[in-house]
């Protein structure tokens, strides 16, 4: 048997190309690992630093009056955050769904493209710019209030909810719309009775993601609500209220390590809330997509 005059093993140039290939693959894998590691490191370090302050009083008591870094909790910061995000959702959800209905169901294709682009652009507006905008039109004249903060958050949420909703409305098969329209049902009734119910899961998921996103917003709230407010227990949205993000911001600036520990604890609480809600929303969306597809 003759030896073949060639070899199928990698030699010379090919050998070098193979090494480059392996090297780049390892680099990409390393980058991906790093991204995951950053999340893990942040969660662990924030958790471990805040652990000392995470006790029952932290969640059930109001902030201590005066200089009392050991006492009190952040109950009304949590309440304030819930009020802020709650009102923002009440404003942004119906508006966002209406915008999505217009873009996906009613608008002529050209206008729909313009509207879609406008939503994507407003998605990219730095949130502090939105904060300044609301400050000049509301706070400068009427003073700080949680409502002003909610409006700023609603402006951030609106394009998020509108785009997420629009995407799930597009997933509803057109045969479902045709079935309804062919019965002599108007476009709007068809949308309300057939299209939106089919897309409800996706709409709720998009909203949850938007909530998770704005719950962590600090910048737009800085000069709209609660910065420098007294620590009285209050939940009236017409008053400036505290919020978790602002507690983190102001406590982390304090010299006393007890305050700093509380800031870490508040950060950990907020982060857990955001992680859990986004995760739940993503899981729900995946399940919902599967259901709609099948």
């Amino acid at each position: 048997m003759n030896e073949p005059a060639f070899t199928l093993k990698a030699t010379g140039r090919l050998r070098r190309r193979q090494l480059v290939n392996q090297g780049m693959g390892a680099l990409a894998a390393g980058a991906a690992l790093l991204a995951v590691a950053v999340l893990a490191i942040v969660v662990i370090s924030v958790g471990s630093r805040g652990a000392g302050s995470l006790n029952l009083a932290f969640f059930t008591q109001n902030q201590a009056q005066g200089f009392n870094p050991k006492g009190g909790g952040v109950l009304f910061a949590i309440v304030g955050s819930v009020v802020l995000v709650g009102i923002a959702t009440l404003i942004a959800l119906p508006l966002g769904v209406l915008v999505a209905v217009y873009v996906s169901e009613l608008a002529p294709p050209r206008l729909a493209r313009v509207a879609r682009m406008a939503l994507d652009i407003s998605n990219g507006i730095p949130t502090i710019v939105i904060g300044i905008f609301v400050f000049t039109i509301l706070v400068a004249a009427h003073g700080q209030s949680a409502l002003a903060g909610s409006i700023a958050l609603a402006i951030i949420m609106l394009p998020l909810i509108a785009r997420a909703t629009e995407e799930v409305l597009l997933l509803v098969p057109s045969s479902q719309r045709e079935a309804s329209l062919a019965l002599g049902v108007s476009r709007w009734r068809t949308t309300v009775q057939v299209v939106i119910p089919s897309a409800l899961g996706g709409i709720l998921t998009g909203t949850t993601l938007a909530i998770a996103r704005v719950a962590g917003e600090t910048a737009p709230l800085l000069f709209l609500t609660s910065l420098g407010t007294s620590s009285t227990a209050d939940a009236n949205p017409l008053h400036p209220l505290q919020s978790l993000t602002l507690v983190i911001f102001s406590y982390s600036d304090q010299a006393d390590p007890a305050y700093q520990s509380k800031a870490w604890a508040a950060a950990f609480t907020l982060m857990c809330f955001v992680l859990v809600t986004s995760l739940a929303a993503k899981l729900a969306l995946a399940r919902y997509r599967k259901k709609l597809g099948g």
Binding site: S175, Q176, E178, A179, A182, L183, G184, V185, V194
Partner: peptide, 19 residues
């Protein structure tokens, strides 16, 4: 058109019952 479709119904190629 809505009134027209009320009087002139339609059955499609693929069955499309509501969910």
């Amino acid at each position: 058109a809505v009134e027209v479709r009320r009087r002139v119904g339609m059955v499609f190629q693929k069955p499309n019952p509501f969910h």
